[in-house]
Write a protein that binds this DNA or RNA. Sequence first.
DNA 1: CTTAACTCGAACATCGATGTACGGGTTGCC
DNA 2: GGCAACCCGTACATCGATGTTCGAGTTAAG
Lengths: 199, 199
Amino acid sequence: MADGKTTASARRPSGQRRADAQRSIDRILDAGLRLYTSRPGVSVAEVAAAAGVGRVTLYGHFPSRTELAKALLERAFAETEAAWREVDTSGPADEALERVLREQWHLMERNRNLRDNIIGDVSPQWLRARHDPILKRIEDLITRGRDDGAFRTDLPLSWLITALYSLVHAASDEISAGRLTTGQAPDVLVASLRSLYRP
Amino acid sequence: MADGKTTASARRPSGQRRADAQRSIDRILDAGLRLYTSRPGVSVAEVAAAAGVGRVTLYGHFPSRTELAKALLERAFAETEAAWREVDTSGPADEALERVLREQWHLMERNRNLRDNIIGDVSPQWLRARHDPILKRIEDLITRGRDDGAFRTDLPLSWLITALYSLVHAASDEISAGRLTTGQAPDVLVASLRSLYRP
DNA sequence: CTTAACTCGAACATCGATGTACGGGTTGCC
DNA sequence: GGCAACCCGTACATCGATGTTCGAGTTAAG
């Protein structure tokens, strides 16, 4: 409830978590990510089993299904934020956007699937609050490109962002369906967005 | 099981259905469409209530949740097929594609949402079998455009189709989110696809 | 008008998922 | 070595959804 930090799991008085407890948490989170990114409607029991952990143990760390989902998302968002900090967004906006796409498109793909399949397990408000800062970085980049004349201005800014996410998602699906390889995907994606964004 | 025709509902010996029964079926289908297109995870009880019909009555016509879902999809597919037959797909492929989009994009939007929210209620094989013929029409049109030089050939055909569906879906979401009006949507969509498909 | 089709609500059986409680065994940590 | 933290399986209570059954009332259609 009032943990201050992220989500759950009562620590011990020392303030530290024991090593085996941390290992369990990691395994649960890993298994949870694997399951949630592959399909919707995952049950807590399934996650526990896939993590090689008792169901009760899982509940010991994550008091409810919702808290587990939140922890999963929190971790993914942190990863994405970290990846953003490592990519060079200076220079012409179109080239910067291409760098962003190439460097972290697979990350976006994974998180997008996660986001889709986890909807309904967390409140929309919570999701929005955590997702908006990430969205904003892309928005800023595209806005800069429009001011510089690198990107078209005849379509709404919100549409350009949505189209980007939509195509990233689509590319991810195409890989799952075997109609696109991991190697082709970034090229196809970049070529498509170039055409779509050019004035 | 072996109905021969579509799904369920034992008719009377005369082979005809009574008028009030048909009315119930229609109301159930209407309510089901309304619910399923608005969100996933709809329950049979909800559909019955929204249709103003007893839950038992619903089960009398659709023996299971799956059969109801199939009937809903069947009806949507039939509508789409009918709409295809009424649009002129002759002439230059790019203009034909634009006509298709403008005339039935809202239909595609509705069916797309239905398709998304109903996944898991019918077997993937069944869905594929019914959806492929519709997909094929678009595929043929795009193929023709590529042969004529109207559409680009540097990206896989499957990707062009996926991108189209993806953007239609995205446009539908944007309307739900209030970031696009029903009036703007077709224009935005057509402009985007023109850019994306041009060689 | 008469019959068969249709509708309804209430009740029941089943199932799977969520979350909690108990009690006995391991294992990290000082 | 000893304590507390941690793990485990089992069992239990609850909840919501799915289908089915029963019996009685209503309504279309010949």
